[in-house]
Design a binder for these strands. Structure first.
Lengths: 205, 205, 205, 205
DNA sequence: GATGAATGAGCATTCATTCAT
DNA sequence: AATGAATGAATGCTCATTCAT
């Protein structure tokens, strides 16, 4: 199964599970269930038996497809990154004025973070405490960098790496704040905050 | 014991533990040990027995001072916030040109995040999954907002809440990135990134 | 598995445990081991790990079958009640003179209480201190009441509820006294005491 | 301090505690607090620290007066027995018709059991599981027997030990049933049940 | 490929008891 | 006589993982 299909699976319902199916479909279902569970309850708040059960399988099946719990997390993360880039890429590819596109890119980011804020929080915690996940995380980030650079070249703007990275960080952090209620706790106006983000993006597009 | 003294404890070595000391000192030692353990191994990567042992006590002592594991985490967080504000406040109070002060404030932020990156990662994960910790977190954030607003008034600058919050987010996120090696993974130049942050702060000071 | 079969299990030896058996048999073994342990050491004198071990399982297995320690106690109690009624019912169903039957019913009661006196003591303590167990206990008692009334109707005697209840109480208490050595401490003659009980039962049969 | 004074203490408030007082008063306060705690929460539901605290002392003080937790229980039990006999004796000593006296004795029993039903439940559980407490219990029972025999001789009735013991058992058990709600669960009429008990007592007086 | 019963190390928490002050 | 901080073995319960079917 290609990456695209799996990424798709994160969003859509899979066909009803047959008693015995092709390995990729089983794995797919497990990844989808795990993504949901991690996002909902956090990495340490879920257990592998439950993930298996929610995917429609018995505990043992889980370990036929992943060496351990960490492994599903890694798989979920991989899909998650792929999906984000697909969405951002698709948005940038659509026609429209620069204003329109900036607006849309911010929208995609915010939506993605809102949807996966629980997962992202676990990700950051694991990156900090787990060597293997940290390494994996950095590989993903490097991939993002490559794609980012390509996009910059495409739009014929001189890429100032640090400046662009900072923009990414700002959007990402603000997206988290909007997603997890922090913005409200700080009594920030959602519309204004969003407008500021759009302006920042626009400036670099 | 006042907050200041406890916050201090997070930074300095406590006197060697007597066989039996005043409760506040015991609590202090436990908070210090817990901060270290959470930062090193993450919230779910440590256990209360180990925290007690590392503070030089038996398991039961821990529960004389905290109702549960969550409670130490909250205590650590409270001190952590207090300390950050103390450090930033102290830095702003020192004399110097606007450039100097911007430079120093960024320095304090980066150092603080570098020192506590593991703890912060756990914090974000718990804020996402634990209702009680989330509530507590928001209370802290609200406090920060008040202090921030006071600082803005003091320097006779019109506080644009959303803009300032965004600045905080940017610094925080960039500080985390520099702290946990993400900046390196993205092949960002530390000096340039830092200079960008200083410029952003300067602009709003 | 039906109630009867489980109740049976309290009396008979189960087949030697296979490495992996049907859940009901595992549960059955755990209930049997728990009944024995509660009877021998009291509710607070045993622990779930020991019950599991004595049933031939690891600690975790216990919690696959019962949400907590209280739950096995309730299961044991349920079986205990069922078994007592089965035995009394069987005795009353057997042919014989009224004298014979009174004699046998008292015999069954005494044997049952002798066998389970430790369990019964724990039961009374828990009924006094634990809300949930108290509720459960009362449900059982109500069931007993219904069966009692039916028996009374069957033998065409006017049931005087309070008088019959008092008879039950007397037998129960005397049975406990005979079982736990209290009768001996009071230097009571077992034969005489038993004869008095038989006479009381006979009178109401 | 005499037994009477201690028994009194189970019913009345003690004078406000001085910082340091005579050992017997401290012991007395601890016994009173323990009686209350055992009755309320059961033997295993209370802890020695709490008993000490509720008596107005620190944990260590408890162990200056009792070798262990079991020892307070024994002390409480001793007082409890003494008190019951005092109350029953006082009632029988009062003038009145035989009917009046039977009525009053039953009243005293019921009240005493109602008041201490939790404690009694723990007592029964410990008697079943704890060797030392069982021995102690039997000694108390033997004492009761002696006093009972004396009372019987005094009223010039031939004491039929087994019959009298059975009466005691019946009253005790019925008193418990009325006290802990079992009578209600069985939908028994309190007034009728009580009348039956009075009649039984009257017959033997 | 899938099952699910079983495992057992591990962790949060309690509480009877001690002892230096 | 009283204190109360400290202890640490014990206990209830969890969950990642295995393996025989």
């Amino acid at each position: 199964m290609g990456r695209a299909r799996l990424a798709l699976a994160l969003a859509r319902k899979l066909p009803p599970r047959p008693r015995r199916g092709p390995p990729e479909e089983t794995r797919e279902r497990l990844v989808v269930a795990a993504a949901e569970a991690f996002n909902r309850d956090g990495y340490d708040g879920t257990d592998s038996n439950r993930i298996a059960r929610e995917a429609g399988y018995a505990p043992g099946t889980f370990y036929k497809h992943f060496v351990d719990k960490r492994a599903v997390f890694l798989a979920v993360y991989e899909e998650w990154v792929a999906r984000e880039f697909r969405d951002v890429g698709a948005t940038l590819a659509e026609p429209g004025t620069v204003d329109d596109r900036a607006e849309r890119v911010v929208g995609v980011f915010l939506a993605h973070h809102q949807r996966w804020r629980g997962f992202r929080a676990s990700l950051r915690a694991l990156v900090a405490s787990d060597r293997e996940i940290r390494d994996f995380y950095r590989v993903q980030r490097r991939k993002q960098l490559v794609i980012l650079a390509e996009m910059q070249t495409a739009r014929k703007k001189k890429a100032i790496r640090e400046r662009d990275a900072l923009l990414l960080f700002t959007i990402e952090r603000a997206a988290d704040a909007l997603a997890d209620g922090e913005a409200e706790a700080l009594e920030l106006n959602h519309v204004s905050l969003r407008a500021l983000l759009v302006a920042l993006v626009r400036e670099r597009l």
